[in-house]
Simulated scan of single mutants.
Amino acid sequence: MSLDKRYLKSKPVCKVKFIAPEPLVERSKKIFLAGEFNEWDYENAPLRKQKDGTYATTIDLETGKEYEYRYVLDGECWENDYDADKYVPNTCGADNSVVVV
Rank of each mutant, 00 (worst) to 15 (best):
S2Q: 13
S2P: 12
D4V: 12
R6P: 00
Y7N: 11
L8D: 13
L8Q: 12
K9V: 13
K11W: 10
K11M: 10
P12D: 09
V13R: 06
V13L: 08
K17H: 05
K17N: 04
I19V: 15
P21Q: 05
P23A: 11
L24T: 04
L24P: 01
V25P: 01
E26L: 10
R27T: 05
R27L: 11
R27F: 04
R27N: 09
K29M: 13
F32G: 01
L33W: 03
L33Q: 01
G35M: 03
F37D: 01
N38C: 13
W40F: 11
D41A: 13
Y42R: 04
A45T: 13
A45S: 12
R48Y: 15
K51Y: 15
D52N: 15
T54L: 10
T54I: 10
T57N: 15
I59T: 12
T63E: 08
T63F: 06
K65V: 06
K65Y: 14
E66C: 05
Y69A: 06
Y69D: 03
Y71D: 02
Y71M: 07
Y71G: 02
V72T: 03
L73M: 11
D74I: 12
G75E: 06
E76S: 11
W78L: 04
E79D: 12
Y82G: 10
Y82A: 09
D83R: 09
A84E: 00
A84D: 02
D85R: 09
Y87F: 15
P89V: 06
N90W: 00
T91L: 02
T91W: 00
C92V: 04
C92F: 04
G93R: 00
G93M: 00
D95R: 03
N96Q: 05
S97D: 02
V100R: 08
